[in-house]
């Protein structure tokens, strides 16, 4: 690793001002960033750890009934405490392994927007709102392609608000070596329609499978899931071809619909 200083502010305001320094970067649970630093793929001058900021940790229910998760909340805490949204709690409880879940945070996962990460699928399928120190961003506007998001330099995710669906499930076809999703599909059924978000498959990162949304909004059953989307633009690597991933998108969507509760 290159050398850098670490700061541990205890409020969002102090973190934001620390992040104003040249080449400063936020540190969440470090489960993605520390390996990146070890490979010397990042060279911050100062890391601003968000781990000591109590106000961005925890799970609660908002006035509008949405489930609100602080940006610094670990996957393990979400798995334990998001019982109001069981599909989301189950997703969090199946990220990586227990030690990763004890450190990794929802804010870090959404800020990183890995094309195979689990939380982006949940946020997009739920039409979640990503709240930062300066504004609220709708999930539909937030994800902007592989590792790209609407976040500005130095902007911190302080909370994520998930409208709780009538029924939902996340089905992850796990890539056993990395424990990320080879393909993961999150299906959420709301009173006004069904949303389907796919991770792991597209070269553009997480996306909504609108054909499936339309079909499932009129008939919420596994049989209604359309034929697999085209493999064009799907990730192709040693773990699976684009066509294979496209096939998995339909299979995992069917499984998610069948499992939705």
């Amino acid at each position: 690793m290159y050398s850098f200083d670490i700061q541990r502010p205890t409020s969002v305001a102090d973190a934001v001002s620390a992040l104003g320094a040249e080449e400063a970067q936020a540190l969440g649970g470090g489960q993605t960033l520390i390996p990146t630093l070890k490979q010397r793929l990042a060279s911050p001058s100062v890391l601003v750890s968000l781990g000591a900021i109590a106000e961005i940790k925890g799970v609660c229910t908002g006035d509008d009934g949405a489930l609100c998760i602080g940006g610094g909340t670990t996957h393990a805490t979400v798995a334990k405490e998001a019982s109001a949204y069981p599909a989301l709690a189950a997703l969090a409880g199946n990220i990586g392994d227990p030690a990763v879940r004890n450190r990794g945070t929802i804010g870090g996962s959404l800020a990183n927007n890995d094309p195979s990460a689990c939380y982006p699928a949940a946020a997009l399928a739920s039409g979640a709102t990503i709240v930062t120190n300066s504004r609220s961003i709708a999930a539909d506007d937030y994800f902007q392609g592989m590792f790209a998001t609407a976040l500005e330099e130095g902007e911190i995710i302080t909370e994520v608000r998930f409208p709780v669906p009538e029924k939902a499930a996340y089905m992850k076809f796990e890539q056993p070596a990395s424990r990320f999703a080879l393909v993961g599909v999150f299906v959420a059924k709301y009173a006004d329609g069904v949303r389907v978000a796919v991770t792991g498959a597209s070269e553009d990162g997480v996306f909504r499978w609108t054909d499936a949304e339309a079909a499932l909004s009129s008939n919420f059953s596994a049989d209604a899931v359309p034929a697999a989307p085209s493999g064009d633009g799907m990730i192709s690597d040693l773990h699976g071809s684009g066509a294979y991933r496209a096939h998995l998108v339909a299979v995992m969507t069917k499984r998610a619909v069948a499992a939705a509760s």
Partner: peptide, 21 residues
């Protein structure tokens, strides 16, 4: 996971956490 230790009672990978934290 060879480096797992407990920090405040929770299992963590000590190779993926800074001492300052």
């Amino acid at each position: 996971g060879a480096c797992v230790v407990h920090v405040n009672g929770e299992a963590v990978k000590s190779c993926t956490m800074f001492a300052a934290e």
